[in-house]
């Protein structure tokens, strides 16, 4: 569904993307993880035509973004990191303008708007002004808007940033539902638990390059099953072990200074990049 090959982008002297290559299969929920400034948002901006790439290629369902951008854009939906809605317009008007941008006919617009408002459980707010909605509702509306023209690939850029845990869970359920309905999802997130909960595959980006990709469990298994956090005079260090007994022996040999836990995705990221996920 998505293929990126050797994508490069510089802002002045800063390399935002430095030969990024990756692919996402149809029906996948791909989580793109990385620290601030790693290139996640630049990738999404390029793939949605908001920023120009310096070099490289990107294909959406086989359609070249560089050669046929309008056709490629029809296949995509985007939920940006910030709430880019018209506060002075109603929920329905926001969706209507969006559907018109994608050239949908009047009956089709009406049908899809009603359908997607129901999908995100916002039918009762159709005529409310967007500026009166809560943060969680705005996020759901943005997802409904991104889906309303029937994209094959949905980009979600930090879809739950700034939301409380209950609303975050609700958005997660919605994202799962979208994927089950056959839409391929490309998600960027800062939240490791979000990627763990949602993703069928993850990719780690650091300094504009993909440093690892695979199923969450595969990525974690590469490190081992168990982790021991050792706290010493020089700070903390994490060691990884295949077996729990090996981890226990290590703690004993370290005079019991350390704690055993399961390996998680943050460990994988730290190991791969040497940086904390912020």
């Amino acid at each position: 569904m998505l293929k990126i090959d050797d994508l490069k982008k510089k802002y002045g002297q800063t390399r935002a993307l430095d030969g990024l290559s990756l692919s996402v299969a149809e029906g996948e929920l791909f989580a793109f993880l990385g620290p601030n400034g790693a290139g996640k948002t630049t990738t999404i901006r390029i793939l949605n035509g908001l920023t120009r790439m310096d070099s490289g290629e990107a294909f959406i369902n086989g359609v070249s973004l560089a050669e046929r951008p309008l056709q490629a854009k029809r296949l995509c939906g985007l939920t940006a990191q910030h709430a880019n809605l018209d506060g002075e317009l109603s929920v329905r008007e926001n969706l209507d303008v969006h559907c018109r941008l994608y050239g949908l006919s009047k009956p089709e617009r009406r049908r899809r708007i009603d359908e997607h408002l129901a999908y995100v459980e916002m039918e009762d707010r159709a005529d409310s002004l967007v500026k009166t909605l809560s943060g969680g509702m705005k996020r759901r509306l943005m997802i409904a808007r991104a889906l309303s023209h029937g994209p094959r690939l949905l980009f979600l850029d930090e879809p739950t940033v700034g939301l409380d845990p209950a609303i975050r869970r609700r958005i997660w359920a919605l994202i799962k539902k979208i994927c089950l309905d056959g839409v391929t999802v490309f998600l960027t997130t800062h939240y490791i638990e979000e990627a763990e909960f949602l993703a069928s595959r993850i990719g780690f980006i650091n300094e504009g390059r993909l440093v690892s990709a695979g199923r969450p469990q595969e990525v974690m298994d590469n490190l081992g099953q168990w982790a021991v956090d050792v706290f010493g005079a020089n700070g903390s260090e994490t060691r990884f072990f295949r077996e729990r007994s090996e981890a226990g022996s290590f703690i004993q040999s370290s005079n019991g200074a350390g704690s055993i836990r399961r390996v998680n995705l943050e460990d994988a990221f730290l190991k791969l990049t040497g940086r904390r996920v912020k």
């Binding site: 949605n48 035509g49 908001l50 880019n84 809605l85 941008l101 994608y102």
Partner: peptide, 10 residues
């Protein structure tokens, strides 16, 4: 940031 809507649309 509504301009991004137009940029992302065909």
């Amino acid at each position: 940031h509504v301009f991004e809507e137009f940029q992302a649309a065909p």
